[in-house]
């Protein structure tokens, strides 16, 4: 599923996908297991960096006195590095970012699109929520101001209002959307949102690939 997103996903995206019930609750354990299997088979690059990160995380854990399992502890299960199917890296904001290998993305897009249409559907659904939240955040924080002639989804009037019978509108927008992590984050300026958009730019463009969408239109149902 992660490999359906060509420009990858951040840790918060993965948590959001779990919250939206697209990922199983034990996704972290599965991912950690998959990566450790890879590690056993082939030592990944960036071993030194991993060790540094582990040390840092141990320090954080020591400081954490809370009873619940902290985000740091959960993240520490995932080792950064270049695996044969995915690259796990730590971004500027110390968040983990997982990007699939191009060959794996291509393989899934070409060979598994008919077998797992639900992956593609979940991806479209998540990126729709994500795009709408990016628009809403830019508007709410006044990073972008509606123009007199705007003609885009920035508008919340006239023909730009969502159709109330639209199943996505009914299922998602009025309920789950409020939970999307971008809504909980605070932004000092447009640059932070712009960086998040850039991280997902290729994911958005992959939503235009008709060969991935056509199996969904031919699929009998779920």
């Amino acid at each position: 599923m992660i490999s359906s997103f060509p420009s990858g996903l951040g840790w918060e995206d993965l948590e959001e996908l779990c919250h939206l019930k697209i990922f199983r609750p034990d996704w972290e354990d599965i991912l950690a297991r998959l990566l450790s299997q890879d590690q056993d088979a082939e030592k990944p690059e960036g071993e030194e960096i991993e060790e540094e990160v582990e040390e840092e995380e141990e320090e954080v854990e020591e400081e954490d006195e809370g009873g619940e399992v902290s985000i740091q502890e959960r993240k520490s299960k995932i080792n950064t590095g270049n695996y044969f199917w995915i690259t796990v890296a730590r971004g500027n904001n110390s968040n983990l970012f997982l990007k699939p290998a191009q060959s794996v993305y291509q393989f899934i897009a070409k060979n598994l699109r008919n077998e797992y249409p639900e992956w593609q559907f979940a991806k479209l659904e998540y990126l729709t929520l994500f795009a709408l939240t990016l628009i809403e955040r830019a508007k709410t924080h006044y990073f972008y101001n509606e123009q007199l002639i705007e003609n885009s989804l920035v508008c919340e009037h006239g023909i730009w209002n969502f159709r109330e019978e639209n199943s996505f509108y009914k299922d998602q927008i009025e309920g789950e959307m409020t939970s999307i992590y971008l809504r909980r984050m605070s932004f000092d300026g447009m640059k932070e949102l712009w960086t998040i958009f850039q991280e997902h730019e290729t994911n958005f463009l992959s939503c235009l690939e008709l060969e991935l969408i056509k199996p969904l239109l031919a699929s009998p149902g779920n």
Partner: peptide
């Protein structure tokens, strides 16, 4: 899926 996908595209392809 067909109907749900079309409903999604109706929003996503203008949101992008």
């Amino acid at each position: 899926y067909k109907e749900k996908t079309l409903d999604l595209l109706e929003i996503l392809w203008i949101a992008i």
